[in-house]
Every structure is written in structure tokens, then in C-alpha cells.
């Protein structure tokens, strides 16, 4: 029992009738600003279902680039309508539900931990299909009608992200020559933006629910925005999410050819390889700066954990990846 059980039970009974009961509430993950809970929904007339509650305890909890959970739920709903594999949205909470900024979705069976997906025998069939399926899913995300999305989603194409992350880097007053090099390279070679689409914004291992048949659901839409669809295609190629399987450019499980074949089969237009590489380099640059941001959270005592501190030492992995990309090395 938690303090959430009573308001959650009221919401479930309003939706599914007075026999609905909430059982086995378990905190699955999340930090101070956002929580994910799993629970059972028991009803007299139907088998027990596993559901997920995503909530930010306070209305002001959406911070940084995150869009807030109610918008996230509406975007997941819009992506479902173009055939994107996503969890079914069961209920989007309103203030009188007393659960904060929150929504309830179906639990999807599967695995998100990259090391298991990339190495366990259980996922060998999944691995052989996953890049193609990711391409299909991204084409469906990028086909979402922008008019069906919540108004005032962030708009961000590519070069403005270079500006934003450069400003953060400058604010840290650190001298990192490879980040300077990356900034010069990114500015010189920026592609013309494609017409804006919905962009997931964090499409990578960890946010992909995978079962033995492959991609089961795309999760964690809190960085969704309007932008250049190639941002998603580049981000899934960043070496930091390949977990040591560098020769498989897409998430350590597949090839770029398979990703693009799936993307095109589902109607996507990816454009030129060099421009995808630009977005991948933008991704590595952003990841490097994110590592420094997480270190700053430690340095300023906002989050004193050793883990935050140690992530700061991962900025150098982004630096070698940027050098490999800029020099055009194999498997960059």
C-alpha cells in the first residue's frame, strides 16, 4: 500500500466499475521528478491486468526539455494511430484524480536492458529483425499528423541544438578541444532541414521494449518535439548505445542498411548518408555535454551520488566517437 493506492483505485473504479481493485503497487524506476509504478488491476468479470502509472508528483515537475506527462500520453496516442508500437494509453489523469501530472498505460512484456538484448540467446531472433523494425517504427512516428499533436510542443531542428548545447558547454567554462572541433565541424556541414515531423527525441536502447520477436513498444516520449526526422535516425546510431558491439551501427544490434530498409518500407525518406552522419555526430556531441551536465549536478551538490560524478568521465567516450566520425573511420 502506498499513498497512491487510494486515488488510483478511485480512478480505476470510475473507469472499470466498482469491482476494480489495485494490487501489488511496485515502484519500477524514476528519480525525484518522475516516478514509474507497476500495479495489478483486479476485476470480478475480467482477468487481472498489469498496468503502469507514470507520474510527476508536482505539476511543475516537467523541467528542461521534457514536455510533461499529459502531453506525452497524447503523443503516444497519436503515434499509436499511425501504427507505431506503443503501450496502450488507459487513462490520462486530470487534476481532480489527485495523482499529479500522470497517465496510466498497459504494461508491455519485454526487456529494455541493452546488454541483455545484445547478448542473451533469448533475443537472437529479435536482434536479426530489430534494426528493420526500428526503421519501420521511426517512419510511422515521422508520419504522425502534426495537427493531431498537443499545441506548443517544442520545435527544434538541428543547428539550434548545436547552439543550445554549445551555450551549456560555454557555461561550464571547461576547455575541451574535441568539443570545439565538433562545433566547428557541425556548423560547417549542417544539412538543410527537412520539413518538420514529430521527432521522438530519445529513440535508443533503454527506451525500446524488446521481446523475443523484436520491437514490442517505443517508450519514454518526454523529449518529443517537432523537428528533423533524421535526428532520430542519427541518435539510434550513436556508439554510446552500442554497448561494445561497435560494428553494428544501429544500437549494437543491426546495420544502417536494415534500419533504412525498414524506414523506406514504411514510407520514410531518409536522404543522404552524410547527413545522417551529421545527426549522429550531433548526437555524440549532445551526449558528451549531457555527461558534463550530469557531473555538474554532482559538483553543485544537487545530486551527490557517485554515479552522477562518474558519468562526467564518460564525456571522453563522446570525444573519441566524434573524432572517429569527423575522420570518417570505419564503424564510426
Amino acid at each position: 500500500m502506498t499513498a497512491l493506492t487510494a486515488p488510483l483505485t478511485r480512478v480505476m473504479q470510475a473507469r472499470f466499475g466498482p469491482s476494480a481493485q489495485v494490487t501489488d503497487m511496485t515502484r519500477l524506476s524514476g528519480g525525484a521528478s518522475q516516478e514509474t509504478w507497476g500495479f495489478g488491476l483486479e476485476m470480478r468479470s475480467a482477468p487481472t491486468r498489469r498496468l503502469i502509472l507514470r507520474r510527476a508528483p508536482f505539476q511543475s515537475a516537467a523541467k528542461g526539455e521534457a514536455i510533461g506527462l499529459v502531453k506525452e500520453a497524447h503523443i503516444i496516442g497519436a503515434a499509436a494511430r499511425t501504427g507505431t508500437p506503443v503501450p496502450e494509453i488507459i487513462h490520462v489523469c486530470s487534476p481532480e484524480d489527485d495523482l499529479g501530472d500522470a497517465f496510466i498505460m498497459a504494461h508491455v512484456e519485454g526487456q529494455t536492458i541493452a546488454r541483455k538484448i545484445l547478448r542473451d540467446e533469448t533475443f537472437s531472433r529479435a536482434r536479426s529483425r530489430l534494426a528493420f523494425q526500428c526503421g519501420e517504427a521511426l517512419a510511422k512516428i515521422h508520419a504522425v499528423d502534426l495537427d493531431s499533436l498537443p499545441p506548443d510542443l517544442p520545435i527544434s531542428h538541428g543547428l539550434d541544438q548545436v547552439d543550445r548545447y554549445e551555450a551549456i558547454y560555454r557555461g561550464f567554462d571547461m576547455d575541451r578541444p574535441v568539443f570545439e572541433l565538433a562545433l566547428a565541424w557541425l556548423r560547417q556541414r549542417a544539412p538543410q532541414p527537412l520539413p518538420a515531423t514529430l521527432v521522438h527525441g530519445d529513440f535508443r536502447n533503454g527506451n525500446l521494449m524488446v521481446n523475443p520477436e523484436g520491437l514490442a513498444a517505443v517508450l519514454d516520449w518526454e523529449l518529443a518535439h517537432h523537428g528533423d526526422p533524421r535526428e532520430d535516425l542519427g541518435w539510434i546510431c550513436v556508439n554510446s548505445w552500442r554497448f561494445g558491439v561497435r560494428e553494428k551501427r544501429v544500437g549494437g544490434f543491426g546495420t544502417l542498411e536494415d534500419l533504412l530498409a525498414g524506414y523506406q518500407a514504411a514510407g520514410g525518406q531518409a536522404g543522404e548518408a552524410k547527413d545522417l552522419m551529421w545527426f549522429q555526430a550531433l548526437g555524440s556531441f549532445k551526449w558528451g555535454i549531457m555527461c558534463l551536465i550530469m557531473y555538474q549536478a554532482f559538483a553543485t551538490k544537487a545530486d551527490p551520488s557517485i554515479e552522477r560524478a562518474m558519468i562526467g568521465r564518460r564525456a571522453s567516450e563522446a570525444e573519441i566517437d566524434l573524432l572517429n566520425l569527423i575522420e570518417g573511420r570505419p564503424h564510426a
Partner: peptide, 22 residues
């Protein structure tokens, strides 16, 4: 410049994360 940065970055990774695939 690229050769120098590669060597400096590789040495940093020898400390930070010596098994990194990059």
C-alpha cells in the same frame, strides 16, 4: 590537429574507460 587530439583523447580514455569500443 586531428592526430594530436586523437592521442590526447585516447590517453584520457585509458584512464576514464579503457575498454570503450570507440
Amino acid at each position: 590537429l586531428l592526430a594530436a587530439l586523437r592521442e590526447v583523447t585516447s590517453a584520457q580514455l585509458t584512464i576514464d574507460q579503457p575498454t570503450y569500443s570507440g
